[in-house]
Simulated scan of single mutants.
Amino acid sequence: MPKVAVVTGAARGIGAATARRLATDGFTVVVADLDEAAGKDTVDAIVAAGGQAVAVACNVADEASVDAAFERVAAELGSVDVLVNNAGVLRDNLLFKMSVEDWDTVVSVHLRGAFLCSRAAQRYMVKQKSGKIVNTSSVSALGARGQANYSAAKMGIQGFTRTLAIELGPYGINVNAVAPGFIVTEMTDATAARVGVSPEDFRKAAADITPLRRVGEPADIANVVSFLVSENASFVTGQTIYVDGGRKL
């Protein structure tokens, strides 16, 4: 039977690209998102290309929702072999304007979400003595104006990744993180709108200060995730790989 990969926040952007890539690699992909219907386009694209995928509703910040989602995956598909913690939100603001709700929402989705999903997935991975977990950090972990909540959560992901690698390594489970730079997504387009520039100008400004002189596409991240969950990366664990075109700040 094909191995099963769960990708959270897979309805669009980096998550959708990752889900499509892992399906191409031969995984049965679980497209997990807040609303099961939201994952339909990603599932349809995978199936149309000859892959296998199902959509599953999962609020990554809610313990009961996460546990129910993973129980369903294990019951219907037989295993949980790969987890990609990708779900995320933005609530950008300068510190003096940032509300407690803005802080809690971002930390809950990114950090609590990665914790809850990883804890659920490892229950199955430990039993089978194999598994791959890839967490999504960001170059913003190194600091970004107006993103105290997001930066803190994304740096937290890196410490979380290193710790899980230590704890889960003896069970044959690899845990790594990817840290994207500027990637063309709905999220970065929304940031452009927030600062009052067009998406095109926003992308060009980012490309101009990136050594490779371009911004990233979701597939650039998906390709690295594909490597990290493959047997080619069997001795790689506890690492955060920056995928940023050479620009970290």
Score class of each variant (00 low, 15 high):
P2K: 15
P2N: 15
A5Q: 07
G9C: 06
R12Q: 14
G13S: 14
G13A: 14
G15S: 03
A16F: 00
T18Q: 09
A19W: 00
R20G: 00
A23D: 03
T24Q: 12
T24S: 13
D25P: 01
G26K: 03
V29T: 10
V29H: 06
A32Q: 06
G39H: 04
D41R: 08
D44I: 02
A45F: 04
I46F: 01
A48Y: 06
G50F: 04
G50R: 05
C58W: 04
V60S: 09
A61L: 03
S65C: 11
A69K: 04
F70E: 07
V73Q: 14
A74R: 09
A75N: 11
D81C: 06
L83G: 02
N85R: 05
L94C: 06
K97M: 15
K97H: 14
V100Y: 11
D104N: 13
L116N: 14
L116D: 15
C117K: 10
S118Q: 10
S118G: 15
Q128W: 04
K129R: 13
K129M: 09
K132Q: 12
N135P: 05
T136Q: 11
S138Q: 09
V139Q: 10
V139M: 11
S140Y: 09
A141Y: 08
N149G: 05
Y150T: 06
S151V: 04
S151L: 04
M155E: 12
G156E: 03
G159A: 08
T161D: 07
R162Y: 05
L164S: 04
L164N: 10
G169C: 06
G169I: 06
I173P: 05
N174R: 10
N174L: 07
P180K: 02
I183Y: 05
A190P: 05
T191M: 15
A193L: 12
S198K: 13
P199T: 01
D201Y: 01
F202C: 10
K204Q: 13
R213F: 03
R214P: 00
G216F: 01
E217V: 04
P218I: 15
P218H: 14
A219Q: 14
D220F: 00
A222D: 12
A222T: 10
V224M: 11
V225T: 09
V225A: 09
V229G: 00
S230A: 04
F235A: 06
G238R: 00
I241F: 10
K248S: 11
K248N: 13
